[in-house]
Simulated assay, not measured.
Amino acid sequence: MQLPSVPRRLLRDQAYDVLLAAIVEGELRPGQVLRDGDLATAVGLSRTPVREALARLADEGLVESKPNAYTRVAPLHRRDCEEAFVVLRALHTLAVREAVPRMTPAHVERMRAANVDFAAALDAGDVLAALAADDDVHDVYLDATGNHTLRSTIERLSPRIRRLERLRFASLPGRDSIGVHERIADACAAGDADLAADLVYANWDSLGRLIETTFADDDLATTG
């Protein structure tokens, strides 16, 4: 009997998803030492996919390693967060400006439906569901651009600010995004790319303010 083998990358991706969620949720805290053997046992996989997942997380700035010393969850540094924030805000603003001329009523309806899910997740206090629904809102215009390079760049950088986004949606200021999302959908429906871009730019303001309040100085933040 010959059966197709399961690609190793699927196991690596499974390990990555689990570890990323644990870091974002704070189960794995900033500065916590990570041992691949312990993590492999915890997620029910061998060490190889776990090591591959850790290498990807290191590339994304969520894990840091010092050879022959440690592998640990990267602490939150103000400068790293600010740099990722500025780039992501610019890319999202560019994306919606490019997307609006290509968007259909179906795109706008998807955006509104995702925003309903977002509001419901906030009401339920489900931060992970809120993050996922927020992604769904913005995925609509990312899909509409048809620009794979733009999307892949955003996806690569986004995990670097995930822990701060978790804090934002766990607080009242995160609820401000509900109304902004609706206004973005309205602008997209009206074909107003400039207004949509201005609103997306403004939608990032709460995260920028959170960076300022989270870091009193340039020391490490140990918020999980």
Rank of each mutant, 00 (worst) to 15 (best):
13 D>A: 05
141 Y>C: 02
127 V>S: 10
192 D>E: 15
160 R>Y: 11
218 D>T: 09
123 D>R: 12
93 T>E: 09
130 A>K: 01
27 E>N: 00
105 P>M: 04
126 D>N: 15
198 D>I: 07
79 R>N: 01
180 V>G: 05
33 V>H: 08
123 D>A: 11
146 G>D: 12
217 D>N: 15
128 L>I: 02
73 V>S: 02
37 G>N: 08
3 L>E: 03
103 M>D: 04
68 N>A: 06
100 V>D: 07
103 M>Q: 04
134 D>K: 09
178 I>H: 09
11 L>Y: 12
203 N>D: 13
164 L>A: 09
46 S>H: 09
200 V>E: 01
201 Y>R: 15
93 T>I: 07
222 T>V: 08
187 A>K: 05
151 R>A: 13
157 L>A: 11
176 D>W: 13
213 T>W: 12
125 G>K: 00
175 R>P: 08
61 G>Q: 05
17 D>R: 09
3 L>I: 05
121 A>C: 09
31 G>L: 08
86 V>D: 14
34 L>A: 11
209 R>W: 15
203 N>S: 14
5 S>C: 01
67 P>C: 08
123 D>F: 12
91 L>G: 01
88 L>Y: 03
81 C>M: 07
130 A>F: 10
2 Q>E: 06
90 A>C: 06
190 A>S: 14
141 Y>W: 14
110 R>A: 05
101 P>A: 01
94 L>Y: 05
82 E>S: 03
30 P>H: 02
43 V>R: 05
45 L>Y: 05
153 T>C: 10
42 A>W: 09
97 R>I: 07
73 V>W: 05
10 L>C: 02
60 E>F: 07
55 A>F: 02
108 V>G: 08
203 N>G: 13
140 V>Y: 00
120 A>Q: 15
51 R>T: 04
195 L>Q: 13
32 Q>L: 08
146 G>F: 14
16 Y>A: 03
65 S>D: 07
58 A>W: 00
125 G>Y: 01
121 A>E: 13
213 T>D: 03
19 L>G: 10
99 A>C: 02
191 G>M: 11
1 M>T: 00
80 D>C: 01
63 V>R: 10
105 P>Y: 01
164 L>R: 15
114 A>F: 04
8 R>C: 00
106 A>E: 14
97 R>G: 05
213 T>P: 03
154 I>N: 03
62 L>W: 03
53 A>I: 04
215 F>W: 15
89 R>S: 09
5 S>A: 05
140 V>F: 00
89 R>L: 01
117 D>L: 13
89 R>W: 04
180 V>P: 02
75 P>C: 08
68 N>L: 10
169 F>M: 10
69 A>G: 03
105 P>S: 10
217 D>S: 15
131 L>Q: 14
57 L>P: 06
37 G>E: 10
86 V>H: 11
72 R>V: 05
144 A>L: 01
137 V>S: 11
173 P>T: 08
108 V>I: 14
9 R>P: 00
145 T>E: 11
1 M>D: 03
210 L>T: 07
182 E>K: 09
127 V>F: 04
103 M>V: 01
12 R>M: 09
72 R>Q: 13
182 E>R: 14
213 T>A: 15
183 R>M: 07
191 G>C: 08
67 P>F: 01
60 E>W: 03
138 H>T: 04
176 D>H: 14
114 A>S: 14
76 L>G: 08
185 A>D: 04
114 A>D: 12
92 H>S: 10
188 C>A: 14
49 P>R: 09
37 G>V: 13
144 A>Y: 00
201 Y>W: 13
191 G>Y: 04
20 L>R: 10
